[in-house]
């Protein structure tokens, strides 16, 4: 499509991978993201269209994986929808087309930096970062929380994998915070 070369949120050509003790941090540049909000009084229409299009609309505080689209709840009648960047770079346009005027759709891909955190037990790390009770919440839990003054979305993909979406402009500060806490935790 375009001739322009992308930079990661950390200012590099390639996504970062960092290992600290038992933790592996992987920057995810291969995710497209868009917000989907129901228009006033159109939730039923949106739900129907989403079902047809294979866009999950999970309940509050949950993430739900799908075949091409996954999604997590962000606000009443609002979700962030994920898809592979390679096939869905134009995620907002794709969703607008499928969901029609039942939803307000906005591209969010580059508003965020995504880090996948993998460890056998990430709890010692997370308890130093945010107030989420990671041990207690179920798989598929998704919430917004605060890490070192930064508002982030946290998704518990499974017991040992966490996805963090942080503000893209603060990607370096967020990674620095993760590294510091990891060194302290293990």
């Amino acid at each position: 499509m375009a001739s322009l070369m992308a930079l990661t949120a950390l200012g590099a050509r390639e996504p970062a991978v960092v290992e600290i003790g038992p933790l592996r941090i992987t920057e995810r540049t291969d995710l497209a993201l868009a917000s989907v909000a129901a228009r006033r009084g159109r939730m039923a229409d949106l739900a129907a269209a989403a079902q047809t299009a294979g866009v999950p609309l999970p309940e509050a505080a949950r993430h739900q994986a799908g075949t091409s689209y996954s999604a997590f709840w962000t606000a009443p009648e609002m979700w962030f929808v994920e898809a592979p960047f390679g096939s869905h770079e134009m995620i907002a346009d794709l969703l607008k087309t499928t969901l029609g005027d039942a939803a307000s759709v906005t591209e969010q891909t580059d508003a965020w930096v995504a880090f996948d955190l993998a460890a056998a037990d990430p709890a010692p790390l997370l308890e130093r970062l945010c107030n989420v009770d990671f041990r207690a919440v179920p798989k598929g839990y998704a919430t917004r929380t605060v890490v070192e003054h930064l508002g982030v979305y946290l998704v518990k993909l499974d017991q040992g994998t966490v996805r963090l979406y942080g503000p893209r402009s603060s990607a370096e500060s967020l990674l620095h915070a993760l590294e510091g806490a990891a060194a302290s935790a293990w």
């Binding site: 917000s35 006033r40 508003a111």
Partner: peptide
């Protein structure tokens, strides 16, 4: 509360 308005920040999404 019944206005049909949806808001989202896109500050960082666009250079």
């Amino acid at each position: 509360p019944d206005m049909d308005v949806q808001l989202i920040s896109t500050t960082e999404a666009w250079a």
